[in-house]
Nucleic acid binder design. Sequence first.
DNA 1: AACCGTCTTTGCGCAATGGCAAAGAGCAGG
DNA 2: CCTGCTCTTTGCCATTGCGCAAAGACGGTT
Lengths: 250, 250
Amino acid sequence: MLMCSDFGPFGVSAGGTVVVKIDKSVLRSFALFEKMPDVEIEELLSRATTRRVPSGEAVFEQGAPASHFFLLLNGRLKVTQVTPDGQQIIVRVVHPGDLFGFAKALRRPDYPGTALSVIESLTVCWPTDLWPHFIDRSPVLAASALNTIGARLEEAHTRIREMSTQEVERRVAHAVLRLTKQAGRAAEGGIRIDFPITRQDIAEMTGTTLHTVSRILSAWEGDGLVEGGRQKLTVRDVTRLQALADSAKL
Amino acid sequence: MLMCSDFGPFGVSAGGTVVVKIDKSVLRSFALFEKMPDVEIEELLSRATTRRVPSGEAVFEQGAPASHFFLLLNGRLKVTQVTPDGQQIIVRVVHPGDLFGFAKALRRPDYPGTALSVIESLTVCWPTDLWPHFIDRSPVLAASALNTIGARLEEAHTRIREMSTQEVERRVAHAVLRLTKQAGRAAEGGIRIDFPITRQDIAEMTGTTLHTVSRILSAWEGDGLVEGGRQKLTVRDVTRLQALADSAKL
DNA sequence: AACCGTCTTTGCGCAATGGCAAAGAGCAGG
DNA sequence: CCTGCTCTTTGCCATTGCGCAAAGACGGTT
């Protein structure tokens, strides 16, 4: 499986797509690299390859050996896991600027989940072997990486706490609010979630079923809280939704 | 709040208890320190303090600034989190040899949970500031720490997956099996969980209620799968319990 | 413009769980 | 040995949320 184009910052990938040259200014625009000296960024980029991931395609798959780690430049991914009996859950949504797939950094031999692009995406790829090297070279990056992992762990625990103690409606409310924060874009009359998302997706993020999510969203729509659509969701009244997420009943 | 005795490896703690001198052979017996050179272990110990934690007492509390990180030598702790509305969940059980409370290593300013001793325990404490120092000095430790964090993240995801896709009975089965693996001790006619654990605890680990856990365990006991008791649990038939945890129905 | 596949909505009935309440049991301390 | 406290068991009932099934939209494609 070809995980990344092997042509360096220039070149033509397997699919015939011209691989974009990544300028350091692009990286610099992400918080992670904000304070990184030019030389270091260039060093990073000199080792990097890039990959265009058409919508619906996987960057890596659950169980595959962790050959690379990645930075999402553009687009949106969902990381999923499949249970032995075939059920799927969404572990996380990856947004532009996020590092992902650094399983090996945590001494895991292979990817614990599948990273699936939801819309056409662009990633930077580095061979996992380079991870220690980068950590050594760039204390900033090392710190950020730990930050990221800490945040991720905390997020996981938050989710566990929610699933343990809250009914479905509040969980869905929290999930939707999180999405608007991470991927919200101002739209007419509310905040629109900026990538195609299905009720099924929301169900897999909250540990419930497509049907229940649909019912809940319908109810909310009736109350003027949100506005739905095919693979679309706009939050009309963030405040009230937040209230619903926080306290028990509306 | 006095987190650790300030008397070094010798001395008398606030409670008047003689603080045990930790010998390097004790640390060496844990996988984490197995391959660590003598000098390094001594260096670690020279900076360490110790603390005896009577049953029911907290090593640190949720929200408190993360002043130390710890190694559990002896005893058993449970790490809990309390939700804003007062419900509690058990995040993890800490076993002898586990590092815990290294929130700061992940750039968290304070402890995300409370570590409560279930039986009288003995911990080694280091100031958080020393973490980077240790990581620098001991690549083995650094690697192990990452290992630990990776495992912890994976564990969290496993739990999310289970809570998303499995009914309560299977979740309880998994939890009990995990406990027997981590804290099982051979007993007459089965494997006994080696520390006092209540149905409430199990409920908080699996995201259900005391009542449901009690019902499930009663049913299992009727089937000869386990044997209960006040704060006791012995698994009689691991194989069958495993089968129940894996496949749907018994 | 017609067609098709995917996503969404909804009704209905049921099984799984949570809530509540009260009684029973084991353990520790006096 | 008695007392009190905490932990556990159980019955009953109210709800939640899931399964199943079918029909309706929406968008993209030819």
